[in-house]
Design a protein around this nucleic acid. Structure first.
Lengths: 344, 344
DNA sequence: CTGAAAGCGCTAACAA
DNA sequence: TTGTTAGCGCTTTCAG
């Protein structure tokens, strides 16, 4: 049983002394170094067990210069999309021998600046960062000196590695899917008035491309405007549009939350989903999977995003110092219960 | 190779040299030590700025023995309840000057053991741990030497600090709320066949207390059994019960996911929520808030849980070494759209 | 008020 | 195969 000096921690030297060997030898068995005689190994291991020795990771870090930790900076951990990304990054990082520090920027510009400026100094080997407020220019200017990979649509400086999905193309395909089910009056929920980010813009673009491609004249009233990002904002926006006489056959939503908002507004208006109106969400979060009916949703491959980001990051950590690589992660359209062929 | 310093190659000594002072003086300035002459401070600061010096946190740690980091170990980051807890803990920890490492145990026993055994050795100042698989006995046996606070119902050894809500009482009150709306045939969704954890048990107990307290004989067919924790398991279980002729007037659910399952099963069966059947979830996660109708749910005060856990932990980190304190965090019952008075 | 030097615990050359 | 020792970058007595 471990009867270590309760209070003071057991050090490598203590083990060495007890085993009657040098620190190097102890270190060798701790690291499973091959060339250690069986007898030696046993003796040292016995001392380790007896003292209950655990290497001090901070000291190891100082000595090696590697921390074995990565930072993942996201706006909010409890937003389903980010929570799911965090899980994937965490799992994949663990597989590669890293641990992650999750940093919430809470949509604060200063917090975001801090992420790439100095928050992680000497603490982590690399940073995966999904910005929400900071833009391309500023990131390029801040030039972080810790390896960095960006996620999402908000910022993509040429100098920095970056992973996202092709939002325009995904939106186009999503719209085409809706068109293929015989729906022509497709609304977009929503263009957010206060939006700084880029994602809605790209998705709207793809939507418009598809409409134009199908020879459907763009009808600006179909692009609904919302006051904010909350579910209530979405419900209000769509309800108002419905009241105004908008009669969409489908609604393409900028995210799953607006997908739920659409379902709520439509059902209040006495419209059935998907019989009367199809609804398509975006991000394929738990929100979509657990809705009733389950919400069809554009589904970025979160595992692939995590893997790609980590690949790029490890590259940088291994010394790659070239121009930024920009990867497009795959996506699918998860077809669940809210998209159906229009029957009259 | 170039794995050396992943950040500030500028060291304290470099600043000292440039400013023509000793390391101690630079350190004093960095730490805003009071007794430094204004002239000195300016001179040093200029050097710091010129070189872009950032202290190496790992080195600081080794020297001080404090890491300024806390570990939060939870089963899965993307389960809404845990994601929300993580957010609260993260925010509150940040307020107190700590950063957190989020550790996913992914419901793996070994991973859970590692958490309290050695995963965090010398890495963090304390650990907040929500176990799922490990039990009271084992934690007591493992005796971690890093300050530890436990969350949840799975394990509560007398030796260790612990925060949870009073599940029995909350379940009793939840059931009483349902009873107060005129519902007498109240089902419980669900007792999970493979369950190891304790929470369902406690909630079921509170439910039974309330029923008995209202002089309603316990009907075992009202306690539905599910094969697993997934939404489909819940839907199947309730659907089967409904098919069997069970006609509940309300369903108390072990968590929000089963709340959604109930809503799904009931609506498939042509029953209206809450007119025909009331549904009450548990955890008050985004799942509940974003459902349509929004799911009423037992709502643990997650912010209070985070605050209490951090209080206890800081106590320990400051040397408190007494017996385990066991705190009950407050909760409310968030009354949304799925509980209503029964009208016939 | 400032400087010199001894660690913090571990790693990794270099020796033996 | 094992031992010696010089750092890693910062903090912190203890002098000056």
């Amino acid at each position: 049983m471990a009867t270590g000096r309760s209070g003071g921690r057991v050090r490598l030297q203590d083990v060495a002394t007890l085993a009657g060997v040098s620190m190097k030898t102890v270190s060798n068995v701790v690291h499973d170094y091959e060339h250690v005689s069986e007898r030696m190994r046993e003796r040292v291991q016995a001392a380790i067990d007896e003292l209950g020795y655990r290497p001090n990771l901070t000291a190891r870090r100082l000595a090696t210069g590697r921390t074995g930790m990565l930072a993942l900076a996201i706006p909010e951990m409890d937003q389903p999309y980010f929570a799911e990304i965090a899980r994937c990054v965490g799992e994949e990082a663990g597989r590669r021998g890293y641990r992650i520090i999750v940093e919430q920027t809470l949509n604060d510009v200063e917090a975001e600046r801090a992420v790439i400026r100095d928050r992680e100094e000497g603490l982590v080997d690399g940073v995966i960062f999904h910005p929400a407020r900071i833009d391309t220019l500023e990131i390029a200017r801040l030039r972080p000196d810790t390896p960095l990979v960006l996620l999402g649509e908000a910022a993509r400086p040429l100098t920095t590695d970056h992973v996202m999905i092709d939002n325009v193309r995904a939106a186009r395909e999503a719209t085409e899917l809706l068109l293929a089910t015989g729906r022509r009056r497709i609304a977009f929920l929503a263009s957010v008035r206060t939006e700084i980010a880029e994602s809605t813009h790209l998705r709207l673009l793809g939507y418009q491309e598809a409409m134009v491609g199908a020879d459907i004249p763009l009808d600006p009233t179909l692009v609904i405007e919302s006051e904010g990002f909350g579910i209530d904002d979405g419900v209000r926006a769509l309800t108002a549009a419905l009241d105004r006489g908008l009669a969409p056959e489908a609604v393409l939503c900028r995210d799953d939350l607006f997908g739920l908002a659409a379902m709520r507004a439509l059902s209040s208006a006495g419209l059935r989903v998907p019989e009367d109106v199809s609804v398509l969400g975006w991000d394929d979060t738990s929100l979509a999977r657990y809705a009733t009916p389950a919400l069809s949703s554009v589904s970025p491959d979160k595992r692939a995003i995590a893997t790609s980001a980590l690949d790029l990051l490890e590259d940088r950590m291994n010394g790659y110092d070239g121009i930024g690589r920009h990867l497009l992660a795959p996506y699918t359209i998860a077809d669940r219960g809210t998209v159906a062929r229009l029957v009259r």
